[in-house]
C-alpha cells in the first residue's frame, strides 16, 4: 500500500496539530542530529546523548520496523507527520528528540552503529532487547518507557489513526480521524467499487 501526503495530513488532524499550508510546503527546518548539543543556545540538553543522524532518518528507520512491511511512501508520511506534529508543541518535540537520542546511543553501544544505519532486523532486536514491546508508555519514565511513548506510540498512533493504516485492518475512518458520517453507514469495503481517488474522502 502507498502512504500519501493526505495520509499524513489525516494523521496530523488526528493529532491535533495545526495544519498550516506554509509548514507543509517545506518551511520547516528538520531537527538535526547535532543541533541539540553545541549549537542551540540555552538548549537544556546536558544529560542527553547526541543523535548521530537526522531525527527523521531515525524515525523513518523505526517506522520501517513498526509499520507493516508492504507500506510505501513511509518516509514522506513520517516527515510530514513529525514536522506538523511537533510544531507548536516544543516540550513534546524535545521529548521526541531526547528519546531518539537515547535509542541512538543504545544502538551505538550495543550494535556499534547509529540506529538509523542498522539493518532492519537489528533495529527490531534493539527495541525488543530494551523491553519496549511490553513497556508502559510514560513520558517521564525510564528510557524504555520514554522510547515507547515518544517514538513507538507516536508512530503507531499516526499510522493506525489514519485512513491508510485503518484501511489495512478494514476501517477507513478509524478513531481519531475526522472521516465524516458516511462510512459508518456503508457496508464492508470489499463490496465497494474501487474508489479512483484512493478513498481519502471517505474515511
Amino acid at each position: 500500500m502507498e502512504l500519501t501526503r493526505r495520509d499524513a495530513l489525516a494523521a496530523l488532524a488526528a493529532a491535533g496539530a495545526t495544519v498550516g499550508g506554509g509548514a507543509l510546503a517545506g518551511r520547516f527546518d528538520p531537527p538535526r542530529a547535532d543541533a541539540g548539543g553545541s549549537g542551540a543556545a540555552g538548549s537544556p540538553s546536558t544529560a542527553t546523548p547526541t543523535l548521530s543522524t537526522d531525527l527523521l532518518d531515525l524515525l523513518d528507520a523505526l517506522a520501517e520496523v513498526l509499520y507493516p512491511s508492504d507500506v510505501d511512501g513511509r518516509r514522506g508520511f513520517v516527515e510530514e507527520y513529525v514536522l506538523g506534529r511537533t510544531e507548536g508543541r516544543p516540550e513534546y518535540r524535545a521529548g521526541v528528540r531526547e528519546a531518539a537520542a537515547q535509542l541512538d546511543a543504545v544502538a551505538r553501544d550495543w550494535e556499534g552503529n547509529a540506529y538509523a544505519d542498522l539493518a532492519a532486523e537489528d533495529r527490531d532486536r534493539t527495541l525488543r532487547r530494551l523491553g519496549v514491546e511490553t513497556a508502559d508508555p510514560d513520558p517521564e519514565g525510564p528510557i524504555t518507557d520514554r522510547i515507547r511513548f515518544y517514538l513507538v506510540e507516536d508512530l503507531l498512533f499516526a499510522f493506525y489513526a489514519s485512513p491508510a493504516g485503518g484501511r489495512l485492518v478494514g476501517i477507513e475512518n478509524p478513531i481519531g480521524h475526522p472521516g465524516g458520517i458516511e462510512s459508518y453507514q456503508r457496508g464492508p469495503m470489499e463490496r465497494d467499487p474501487d474508489d479512483p481517488t484512493g478513498g481519502d474522502s471517505d474515511g
Partner: peptide, 13 residues
C-alpha cells in the same frame, strides 16, 4: 478499535 489496540499491543510490524 484498531488504533487503541495497536497502542496497547506488545508487538509491531
Amino acid at each position: 478499535s484498531p488504533v487503541i489496540e495497536a497502542l496497547h499491543a506488545e508487538t509491531w510490524g
